[in-house]
Design a protein around this nucleic acid. Structure first.
Lengths: 220, 220
DNA sequence: ACGTTAAATCTTGTAGACAACAGTCTTCCG
DNA sequence: CGGAAGACTGTTGTCTACAAGATTTAACGT
């Protein structure tokens, strides 16, 4: 067994972690019996967790064929990035007018963690900090549904990254450049100027710190 | 029993229908035993369906307290409408450049159904046509994730409507005005002029044909 | 030798039963 | 008479078992 707060929740989190960490590869089939045994739970709560993951676009279910980790086509990646950009832009449009200085404190601490991760070239820590940063950014809008939708897209983005971008991420120069990009975005937000934020966000979206440009050309 | 294509799917659709039709009221508790008996299925597939509905924001689950139909606060309604507006705007931004005339044929047939529903003052048919229209609109963008997210928001909008707006919807004048508003939006789309579409969409979003303005004042 | 069919195995879908927890009502004590 | 504690009922959480369908493999016929 894992713990007490609902085996469904635990299974959800654990499977999500396995997938985003790349231990369950895209396209890989998820056998319920094997997974439930591996997690130490029975199939019913596992199945509920898989339904949730399917609703969030992390796994894909086909009626009598079970579940697979989603495989992302180039079009899928485009969808994810474009949707992410729209949601984040909307979040900042909402957040900027009512933004208080102390709201950004949390983002600052996240940035310090990101810098530390970059210095130690710890890719998992970078990915985690990146995720927290952007979730925190969107949370500024105080829009629950927006945050929820954004979190789902964020998971799918990590799904792309775990597949494509290992090589680039390991170049520490890219890591520091990613941190700088985040800092610039944060500075733009501090100015409260929507146009400046929009400009910085556009640059940020195109070349998200774990850079996508290099890998898109090679795909189908 | 219901049919063959997965009792989970059937239960999902049926419960969603019950909720959106107002037969299961907001805030109402959903007892698994009662619901499963009512649907003629056992609890495991029902629970999976409820997980999906919870992920889509139709029902709310609290750990040892079961499921309830979501109750929407004024802030929730604001969130839903604002998110809807952003997603639909994005959809049309994507769709307009590559739009072909024949893509709008389906929307025209939906509009004819909507006019017919308005003439016969059939509120359920109006609601259905409205839903199809907007889903079709967003589908023009050919963006699966966008359509998926929009569908969830659309369900939540119908959740608002089933609660608040019965009285107004029955005034046939409002119904025809709603149809006209949709036609104007469709005309704007035909022009392929983003600004014109954006303008029409702004008007459309604020006062969605089953009008919200009258009822928001009365709520908490 | 190749295609087709049938059987066997494996996997998902579903059902029913048991355990743990929450809420409620009653009872007992102050 | 009021409040708190304990038992009881009911509901959710979880597990094991069974049924139906899909896939694969092997055997048989052409």
């Amino acid at each position: 067994m894992l713990d007490q707060p609902s085996l469904v929740t635990l299974a959800d989190q654990e499977i999500r972690r396995l997938i985003l960490a790349g231990e369950l590869a895209p396209g890989q089939r998820l056998y319920e019996a094997k997974l439930s045994e591996q997690l130490g739970i029975s199939r019913p709560p596992l199945r509920e967790a898989l339904r949730v993951l399917a609703a969030q676009g992390i796994v894909r279910q086909t009626p009598r064929q079970g579940y697979r980790v989603v495989e992302l086509s180039e079009q899928d990646v485009d969808e994810i990035y474009s949707l992410r950009a729209v949601l984040e832009q909307f979040a900042l449009d909402l957040a900027l007018p009512a933004l208080r200085t102390e709201d950004l404190a949390e983002l600052d601490t996240i940035m310090s963690r990101m810098w530390h991760a970059a210095r130690t070239a710890s890719e998992p820590a970078i990915v985690a900090a990146n995720r927290e940063f952007h979730l925190g950014l969107v949370a500024l809008a105080r829009h629950k549904r927006l945050s929820h939708a954004y979190a789902a897209v964020m998971d799918q983005m990590q799904l792309c990254m775990s597949k494509n971008l290992r090589a680039e991420a390991h170049q520490s120069g890219t890591l520091f450049e990613g941190c700088r990009r985040h800092e610039r975005l944060l500075d733009a937000i501090r100015t409260r100027d929507p146009n400046q934020v929009r400009r910085e966000l556009a640059r940020h979206g195109e070349r998200t710190f774990l850079d996508r440009a290099g890998s898109t050309g090679s795909g189908g």
